[in-house]
Computed example of a mutant assay.
Amino acid sequence: MIHKILSYLIPINIHTEKSSLNKSIEITWTNGELVMDSENTNYSYGSLQRILRLGLKYIGFDRINSMENVLVLGVAGGSVIKTLVDEIKFGGKITGVEMEPEIIELANKYFKLDEIPQLEIIIDDAFEFVLKTKEKYNLIIIDVFQDTHMPNFLFESFFINRICFLLKSKGFVLFNTMLLDEKQNLRNSKFISEFSPVDYSIKSIPRVEKHNELIVVEKLV
């Protein structure tokens, strides 16, 4: 494909549209790879896929392979789902929650997300879904952004407690955050302090792709 070849020299945009929450969503060939970007940041594939792959690698591909179900809050183009299925060969159920139906339409069209048989996509707000779901999960991946903004509810005690309740024994939370200033550093520190060291093991992986910090939470009981 000519776009793929040319993209090693210069990024080639092939689709741009507005979504309900983002001024711009772009599908672009970059360095031979198709990526999804919002106005100011990578939204799926590219650097974001590398960031979340690092977190999954820290948890352990073999360990993930033995899990029954995974919840992904914030699907976008589905790059972390593709990592689970294509690289880790995860065969269990994946539930993906995405607020914007337009994003899922793009993910299906350009990244073939609808061809993954064990994936169920639910169009809903992540907070609302977490309140309603009765299922429990071995791994919960939180990757909820509106461009570079992270909704406040992600760091509130009620949401954190609900996530912990939905996590099975010996399960993991993989939380992708963005750190752009000292206020956000303090926000992340407060989030980590919410977890009891008796019941949870927490590892933070800072400065991933410059501005991201991964927080990995393991439920010990």
Results as ranks from 00 to 15, higher is better:
I12C: 11
E68G: 13
G74F: 05
I14P: 05
I59Y: 12
L56P: 05
V70F: 08
T95Q: 06
L6A: 07
E87A: 04
S7T: 01
N69W: 05
E100R: 00
S47G: 05
E68N: 15
R50S: 10
G96W: 00
E39L: 14
I51R: 02
N69L: 03
N22A: 13
L54F: 09
V75M: 01
P101T: 11
S44G: 05
N22P: 03
G77I: 04
G32E: 13
I25D: 06
N13Y: 07
N22R: 03
I103R: 01
E33W: 00
K82T: 07
N13Q: 13
M36Q: 13
Y45H: 15
M67I: 12
D37M: 09
S20R: 09
I5L: 14
N40Y: 14
S7D: 01
A76N: 11
T30M: 15
I64H: 08
S24E: 15
T16S: 15
N31D: 15
I25W: 08
G96I: 10
S44N: 01
E100I: 10
S44P: 02
F61N: 14
N69P: 06
S24R: 15
G77K: 09
G60Y: 06
R63D: 13
R53I: 00
T16W: 05
K82F: 09
E68K: 14
E33V: 09
I94A: 03
I103D: 06
I5C: 01
F61P: 04
N42L: 10
I10R: 05
D37S: 14
S19A: 08
I5G: 06
I59N: 11
G60R: 03
K18S: 15
I27Y: 00
L48T: 02
V75A: 01
I59P: 07
I5W: 00
M99H: 11
V85A: 00
L54I: 08
G96F: 00
L84F: 08
I5D: 07
E26Q: 14
H15L: 13
L71D: 08
K89S: 02
L84A: 09
K57I: 11
V97D: 06
S47N: 10
I10D: 02
K23H: 12
N65D: 04
V85E: 00
I10V: 12
A76D: 11
V75L: 09
L84I: 10
T95D: 07
L21G: 08
G60F: 11
G91H: 05
Y58F: 07
N22L: 14
D62F: 02
S66Y: 08
V72L: 03
I14Y: 10
I14W: 13
G74H: 09
D62G: 02
G55K: 07
V80Q: 12
G96T: 01
E98I: 04
Y43F: 15
I104C: 08
M67C: 07
E39D: 14
S44K: 05
L73C: 06
G96L: 04
K57R: 13
M36D: 03
N65Y: 02
P101Q: 12
G55L: 08
R53N: 08
L52V: 14
G96Y: 00
P11V: 04
E68L: 10
E87P: 06
